[in-house]
Write a protein that binds this DNA or RNA. Sequence first.
DNA 1: TAAAACTGATACTATATTAGTATCAATTAA
DNA 2: TTAATTGATACTAATATAGTATCAGTTTTA
Lengths: 148, 148
Amino acid sequence: MKVLTKNTDYAIRALLALAAKKGSYLSAKSIATEHDIPYQFLRRLLQEMIRHNLIVSKEGVQGGFMMQKNPDEITVTELIEIFQGKVQVSECMFRKQICSNRARCVLRHEIMRIEHVVQSEFEKVTIGKLLRDLEVVNQVSSKATTIN
Amino acid sequence: MKVLTKNTDYAIRALLALAAKKGSYLSAKSIATEHDIPYQFLRRLLQEMIRHNLIVSKEGVQGGFMMQKNPDEITVTELIEIFQGKVQVSECMFRKQICSNRARCVLRHEIMRIEHVVQSEFEKVTIGKLLRDLEVVNQVSSKATTIN
DNA sequence: TAAAACTGATACTATATTAGTATCAATTAA
DNA sequence: TTAATTGATACTAATATAGTATCAGTTTTA
Ligand code: FES
Ligand code: FES
């Protein structure tokens, strides 16, 4: 069971790149090259993120993409929803014969509770937080002898 | 993002049917019919569950499948692992350029923490628990006027 | 003892989702 | 004016999910 698809994975990495260069434009090409993301694939993701007002773009030479939304307010939950749809455990696990009363269904509540937990865990993880974590990692590893 | 696939969904429902008739054999056909599960699909799932010692079978006329493992010890996590593979957030989200030191990686820990949360939430939900919940639902709905 | 009701095993097809590629028009800086 | 860029969109490929079909073997029972 894979929780994050490439869509989301790539989007997060692109956002980290953009967040790190906050205030200036980065081209899709440079992001693709640096982070090993298929160029055209990445471009689609970037456009989707524009539509959701996470980033903005500038066309033409010296153009590119720039962070728009505050990285601390971009949650992994939001990205999952954009690229993989809302988290849902099961459309309705026990329909028909088994579950006779949807309105009162205890199971449904159980399912919704889990959906909630999963969502809120991913909500704790923002692009801002990831970026700061990342800086720590890179600081440590540049000081220490890196054994990978 | 769909957390449970049909595999798991159907498997849970079949197990609930078997758990409810603990001690006697239920044929694949009867389960399929009652719970609206494609017959041949269900049979594959049942065989898989035999291999994992959740249920046992008896061949021939009057044969079928019977609960083997204690329903309270069958977790949804286990079923997800059988039918959808182990929960993994991302194989390794920030490899190469970004993540220079895998061993110390904060992000990796973050990811593993979430994997853990998701897993343990689903671990709280056992077939036994679902069955008891279900009985409550059906009691309530048979007393009340069912508005679906 | 033969037919019917079953499971075991496995191969196959269909559909949907995910991943990746290609193309061309429009914009803009130099 | 040209090269570097995004906007938009259509396409293909690969993989995962869902569902079907078939045949052999076992067991009850008439
Ligand atoms: S699980 Fe869907 S209504 Fe009960
Ligand atoms: S995220 Fe994979 S090693 Fe850091």
